[in-house]
Simulated scan of single mutants.
Amino acid sequence: MILVFGSSGQVGASLAGRDGVLSLGRAEADLTDPEACAAAIRAHRPRAVINAAAYTAVDKAESEENLAAAINGAAPGAMARVAAELGIPFVHISTDYVFPGSGTAPHQVNDRTGPLGAYGRTKLAGEEAVRAAGGVHAILRTSWVYSDHGANFLKTMLRLSETRDHLTVVADQIGGPTPAPAIADAVMIIAEALVTDPSLSGTYHFSGAPDVGWADFARAIFAAAGRPVTVEDIPSSAYPTPAQRPGNSRMDCSATETAFGIARPDWQATLPHMIKSITETS
């Protein structure tokens, strides 16, 4: 059995109900209580652990950094330590926000980190705690997650298109939109691989292809949904937010494909199915 933390999130929801998976939500494991998370691992003794839980409210984290630090930093650290103690592989999902987002080249796994805000700082703290635990682990950084569950850019664009035919969208932030089900598939593959080959421990990147700006991603969404909305490009400076976003969220994912045989998912191919799922359930 593989134990999953974060059943209510986008990736967690994509993992819930799969064969051989036991998903824990807030009721079963309070992420603000790291020792409760560690106790859950001790109680279940799984063959692997996947941490899909996170505090992801990027702007709100600027005023709730202590809470974000508990969930994104202390909790995965506690999980990783008990997993290491019990000899259980630990897979942790992280983010492109650990990077400063400068330049235009895809970020390599070993590139210098430098978060721009509280969310990125707390996620980086989680990465460091997982590594420090010293057990078999994989840290999987991903970006621009979307699905038919929870809050995300895809659902926001579809909602806005119901009442508006023109939108201004930031065009100078570039990254890889990543469908949550593809991340779920990836972490399952990685968890099983670590069980049989602990030497695969390390940090990896996984994001959708091709890389695109938010404005062009919005255009693709409206085209796939058949909605006549025009998109006007604007710079990030024209849309100020409490937390600064990375301008460059491109990530080199080649090590992930080499180690685990997992290629970058084509977000353009999955978009129509995801849109259909959202519109049918809304």
Rank of each mutant, 00 (worst) to 15 (best):
F99Q: 01
F99M: 05
F99N: 08
P100N: 15
G101F: 07
G101M: 10
G101A: 07
G101R: 03
A105K: 11
A105I: 06
A105C: 02
P106K: 00
H107V: 09
V109F: 04
V109N: 03
N110R: 12
N110D: 15
N110M: 07
N110H: 13
R112D: 13
T113G: 03
T113C: 08
T113K: 05
T113M: 04
G114S: 12
G114L: 12
P115C: 12
L116E: 05
G117Y: 12
G117W: 11
A118C: 05
A118R: 02
A118Y: 04
Y119H: 14
Y119D: 12
Y119A: 11
G120A: 14
G120E: 14
R121C: 13
K123N: 12
K123T: 13
L124V: 10
G126D: 14
G126Q: 09
G126E: 12
E127N: 08
E127L: 06
E127A: 07
E128C: 01
V130L: 06
R131G: 06
A132F: 05
A132G: 07
A132Y: 07
A133M: 02
A133N: 06
G134R: 05
G134H: 05
G135K: 04
V136T: 15
V136I: 14
V136C: 15
V136D: 13
H137N: 09
H137R: 08
A138K: 10
A138T: 08
L140H: 12
R141E: 14
R141C: 15
T142E: 00
T142Q: 00
T142G: 01
S143C: 08
W144L: 15
W144A: 04
V145H: 13
Y146T: 04
Y146K: 02
S147Y: 12
H149R: 15
G150F: 07
G150S: 11
A151F: 00
A151R: 00
A151I: 05
F153L: 11
F153S: 07
F153E: 05
L154E: 02
L154W: 00
K155R: 15
M157Y: 08
M157A: 12
L158Q: 09
L158G: 10
R159I: 06
L160C: 07
L160V: 06
E162A: 13
E162N: 05
T163Q: 13
T163F: 08
R164K: 10
R164A: 05
D165E: 11
D165Q: 11
D165A: 10
D165C: 01
H166I: 01
H166C: 10
L167W: 09
T168S: 15
T168D: 15
V169T: 12
V169E: 08
V170N: 11
A171I: 04
D172T: 08
Q173W: 02
I174R: 14
I174D: 09
G175C: 14
G175P: 14
G175V: 09
G176H: 12
P177R: 15
T178Y: 02
T178W: 02
P179N: 07
P181F: 14
A182G: 05
I183H: 09
A184Q: 01
D185F: 02
D185L: 05
A186K: 08
V187D: 03
V187G: 04
V187K: 07
M188S: 06
M188P: 02
I190N: 01
I190R: 01
A191K: 03
A193I: 08
A193E: 11
L194R: 10
V195Y: 07
T196R: 13
T196H: 14
D197A: 06
P198V: 00
P198G: 01
S199T: 13
L200S: 06
S201L: 00
S201Q: 02
S201F: 00
